[in-house]
Computed example of a mutant assay.
Amino acid sequence: MKYDLIGDDMFYRTIEGLLLKCLGLIESNRLLHEVHEGTCGTYQSAHKMKWLIRRSGYYWPTMLEDCFKYYKGCQECQRFGKIQMVSASVMNPISNPGHSEVGVWT
């Protein structure tokens, strides 16, 4: 059995035997907002959002798909997602001063 009913709440039982509280549509949308744009405003990716939600003890069957929809619908994530943060210059290798030409440490 993957689901348990305790009182009025339904729980999903993981392989490890942990109980995760099943959420409905309204609660799951509120939780997605809190995880993605919440107090710290971290704007996590979909997989990280799912991991955080499960780690917090919640579950619903379409969790990953809903995380992707929410992430793709976030205007801030889409606006700043393609900005390159490093300069457009050629990268130069850095030589190690303790390393000789033949690969022996001196």
Results as ranks from 00 to 15, higher is better:
Glu76Gln: 15
Arg30Ala: 12
Pro97Asp: 11
Thr62His: 04
Arg79Phe: 06
Leu32Ile: 06
Val35Thr: 14
Lys21Tyr: 01
Leu31Gly: 01
Met10Ile: 15
Pro93Leu: 05
Arg13Glu: 15
Ser95Asp: 08
Lys2Tyr: 09
Lys50Asp: 13
Asp66Val: 05
Met85Tyr: 00
His36Tyr: 02
Met10Glu: 13
Gly38Ser: 08
Gly98Asp: 09
Cys67Val: 06
Met63Glu: 06
Ala88Ser: 15
Glu34Pro: 00
Tyr43Asn: 12
Arg54Val: 02
Met85Ser: 05
Leu5Lys: 14
Met49Ser: 11
Trp105Glu: 12
Ile53His: 01
Glu101Ser: 14
Cys77Lys: 07
Met10His: 07
Glu27Gly: 07
Ile94Ala: 10
Leu32Tyr: 02
Ser28Gln: 00
Lys69Ile: 03
Ser45Gln: 08
Tyr43His: 15
Glu76Cys: 03
Ile6Tyr: 03
Thr42Gly: 09
Cys67Tyr: 03
Cys22Asn: 06
Val90Asp: 13
Thr106Pro: 15
Arg30Pro: 00
Arg30Ile: 08
Gly41Ser: 02
Val104Tyr: 03
Ser28Ile: 02
Ala88Trp: 00
Arg79Met: 13
Arg13Asn: 12
Asn92Cys: 14
Met85Glu: 04
Ser87Gly: 14
Tyr12Gly: 04
Leu32Arg: 04
Leu52Ile: 05
Lys69Ala: 09
Thr39Glu: 07
Ser100Trp: 02
Lys69Met: 01
Ala88Thr: 09
Glu27Pro: 11
Arg30Lys: 11
Thr14Leu: 03
Thr14Phe: 00
Leu20Asn: 12
Met85Pro: 01
Tyr12Trp: 13
Glu37Ala: 14
Asn29Ile: 01
Val86Gly: 03
Leu32Gly: 04
Tyr12Gln: 12
Phe11Cys: 04
Leu32His: 04
His36Phe: 01
Ser28Cys: 05
Pro61Ala: 08
Gly81Trp: 00
Met63Ile: 15
Val104Leu: 13
Asp8Leu: 14
Gly7Phe: 02
Pro93Cys: 01
Arg54Thr: 10
Asn29Tyr: 06
Gln78Cys: 04
Tyr3Arg: 12
Glu16Lys: 13
Lys72His: 09
Arg54Ser: 06
Cys40Gln: 07
Ser89Thr: 14
Ile83Glu: 14
Phe68Ser: 07
Gln84Asn: 10
Thr42Val: 06
Val102Thr: 15
Leu64Gly: 03
Thr39Gln: 04
Gly57Met: 02
His99Ser: 12
Glu65Lys: 14
Asp66Arg: 05
Trp51Leu: 12
Ile15Tyr: 08
Ile83Lys: 11
Ser100Gly: 04
His36Asn: 12
Gly41Glu: 03
His36Arg: 09
Cys74Asn: 04
Asp9Gly: 02
Glu37Trp: 03
Trp105Ala: 13
Ala46Ser: 11
His47Gln: 13
Glu27Thr: 01
Leu5Arg: 14
Gly24Gln: 05
Val35Trp: 00
Lys50Leu: 08
Gln75Gly: 04
Met1Trp: 05
Ser89Gly: 11
Leu31Asp: 01
Ile15Gln: 15
Met63Val: 07
Ile26Leu: 11
Met49Gln: 04
Ile15Asn: 10
Asn92Ala: 15
Asn92Gly: 07
Cys40Tyr: 08
Leu31Cys: 05
Arg13Tyr: 01
Ser100Leu: 09
Pro61Glu: 08
Met91Val: 10
Thr14Gln: 11
Gly24Cys: 02
Met91Gln: 07
Ser56Thr: 03
Ser95Phe: 09
Phe11Met: 05
Tyr12Leu: 05
Leu19Tyr: 13
Asn92Arg: 13
Gly98Ser: 10
Gln75Asp: 09
Asp66Glu: 15
Thr14Trp: 02
Ser28Val: 02
